[in-house]
Amino acid sequence: MTERTAAGAGAGDVSIRVAALCLGQNGRLSDRLVCGPAVRGALLLDLALSARVEQTEDSILVDPTPTGFAPADRLLAAIGIEPERSLDGWLDERRIGLRDVADGAVRAGRWSQGRGALGLGRRYVDGDVARTLADLARDPDGEPAGWTPEDAGVTAIAAVAGLRDRELGYAESLAPAVLAATGSAAWLCTAIVDHLRVLTARYAAEAAGLGPF
Rank of each mutant, 00 (worst) to 15 (best):
S30E: 12
I192W: 00
A191V: 07
A70Q: 12
A9C: 04
G183R: 05
D165S: 06
A77V: 11
P37T: 08
R17A: 15
R115M: 12
A137K: 09
T182R: 06
R164N: 07
A145V: 08
D31R: 15
G169D: 09
R166T: 12
T65C: 05
D92L: 15
W90A: 00
G116S: 13
L33W: 09
P37Q: 04
A152S: 07
A42C: 10
S173L: 10
A159C: 02
L76A: 06
R85I: 10
D63G: 08
T148M: 03
R164G: 06
L133F: 02
D46Y: 04
G36W: 00
R95F: 10
D151Y: 02
R131T: 13
M1V: 05
R40N: 01
D141H: 09
L21Y: 07
A108P: 11
Q25G: 14
G24Q: 14
G97K: 06
S15Y: 13
L196C: 03
I60L: 14
E167K: 12
L43F: 09
L136Q: 10
R164Q: 13
P144S: 04
P140Q: 01
G36L: 00
L210M: 14
E54S: 12
D139I: 07
R28H: 12
P83E: 15
T190E: 14
L179V: 15
L174H: 10
A159N: 00
A42P: 03
D151P: 01
S112Q: 13
A102L: 04
D63R: 11
T2D: 06
D100V: 02
T155E: 00
H195P: 00
D128S: 10
